[in-house]
Amino acid sequence: MCNCENTYIPIPMKVEKILIENPDRSLRTYDLSFVNEEDRKKFTYMPGQFCEFSILGKGESPFGIASSPTEEGIIKFTVSRTGSVTNEIHYLQEGDIVGIRGPMGNWYPLEKLKGQDVVIVGGGFAFTTLRSMIVFMLENRDDYGKITVIYGARHPDLFIFKEELKEWDKRDDIILHLTVDKPVKGWNKLCGFVPAITKDVKPDPTSWCIVCGPPIMIKFTLPVLLEIGFAHEKIYTSLERRMKCGIGKCGRCGIGSKYICIDGPVFSYEELKKIPDAF
């Protein structure tokens, strides 16, 4: 064996805590801790990166890292139950040992965002890496200007990280706009699709914007941002494709000459518009 790192070998992790995020139990957040101290020291990441979550005997699936590097020792993922691997993840109990490979991919342009106003637009459970980003910015609050968050879900139950959303809502150094698709009894916040709400909120186009959500939401939010006057190179998004290796070898996640797993998942609109099959 060559002495290069073997990235196919998962790092053993212990399931510390499981949080069921919604009443239909389809979304669960997992706090994992490192079994080996050396692995913990070596694992450094940035908001926006992802891991391959590995269940021996079932396979692997990629998930965005929902924790922030400022939350030491814990790696957090929120998993929506959709197929074979995610099913198996939902069967996990606290104390179980699983594996992760990563961190993989690039991250949100936090260096460029320093000293700038930041607008975050998210939809559904794709809010994971956006949480990472928000927690990171709040921990380093003085490095950033105004922080505005627009977050939409189909139904109030389908928001993730509800407790944190409540806390952020109380703070005056972050502005939160929460919206649901249709009116629901007892919901006293915004109502309407993310693109429409973004239009109403009309964020300052000199800020930087991170958009992350289902493809359809991204597709309809981008034109709104462009109309408001955001510069193409100041809009960022994170893409998803089916993945296997996560290291640019298996060919699965290719879009044009890029691989989402190593050239992304984070791309600026400036980059994406040059890639033919990005959306």
Partner: peptide, 11 residues
Amino acid sequence: HCFDVTDEGKG
């Protein structure tokens, strides 16, 4: 060079 990764085994 495209490939798939899969687990084979029982339990």
